[in-house]
Computed example of a mutant assay.
Amino acid sequence: MRGVAYQTFYRLPHPVRRRVVRLIVPKYLVGAVAIIKDSEAADPGRLLLLRQPPGRSWGLPAGLLKKAEAPEVGAARELAEESGVVLDPTDLTPATPNAVVHAKGWVDMIYLGQVPASTTPLVVDGGEVLEAGWFSLADLPRLTPNTAKVLGLYGMGPNAS
């Protein structure tokens, strides 16, 4: 029976097959996240975090990718837009694992980078981002649940294993 279903499916015109797949398969939004460390800080290091509305918790520079945008380009763009930190996309390293699938329907591509905090000004717009700052990994502020989850995957923050 399964074989018959596949044969029938592959006989359909390509546009129809694509429409059928889009109706059946879950859809995911793809975002890019930048985990930026202070290159001058001694162990355990410092991390760039942002406080965004409503402003109760802190998170990482992140956002959705634009259509056909490479993930590392999106991570660098979001980092610059949200914090004023400008890095060339080639200065960001894909984290391992590079993709984090969230249960609520999006995938984050994670990138790591470093800048010297003492000479890197932080600039926020006050609308999308209320505040940006450097925080010791040993004394992080209250994190958003997604930020705690992502950092934990890379051995940082309250969920580090």
Rank of each mutant, 00 (worst) to 15 (best):
R19D: 12
Q114A: 12
V20L: 15
G113A: 07
E82W: 00
A76V: 12
L151A: 01
H14Y: 13
L112C: 11
Q52M: 12
Y28F: 14
V86C: 13
P61C: 11
V129H: 01
L79C: 04
A5D: 11
N146T: 15
S39N: 06
A99I: 10
E69Y: 03
T90N: 08
V107R: 02
A138S: 14
L143Q: 05
L12T: 14
P141L: 09
S83T: 06
V115D: 01
A5G: 12
G157W: 08
G155R: 06
V129R: 00
V33Y: 02
P54Y: 11
P15K: 08
V101W: 05
P13Q: 15
V25Q: 10
G45Q: 11
G45R: 05
V25Y: 07
P145F: 00
H14F: 14
K27T: 15
A148R: 02
Q114F: 10
G126W: 00
E69P: 05
A80P: 01
A117K: 03
L153W: 09
L137G: 04
E78N: 10
S83I: 02
A99C: 06
S57C: 13
I35Q: 05
A76M: 11
Q52E: 14
P145W: 03
A34C: 13
G152P: 11
L79T: 01
F135D: 03
A138L: 13
I110Y: 03
K37W: 03
P121F: 01
P13G: 13
R51T: 01
R18D: 14
A62W: 03
L29M: 14
L151V: 07
D88I: 12
S161F: 13
G55W: 04
A148G: 06
A70G: 08
V86F: 04
L47P: 00
I36P: 02
S136L: 09
A75W: 04
S39L: 10
D125A: 14
D88R: 12
L143G: 04
L49Y: 05
A76E: 08
L92K: 02
A138E: 12
D43K: 14
V25D: 07
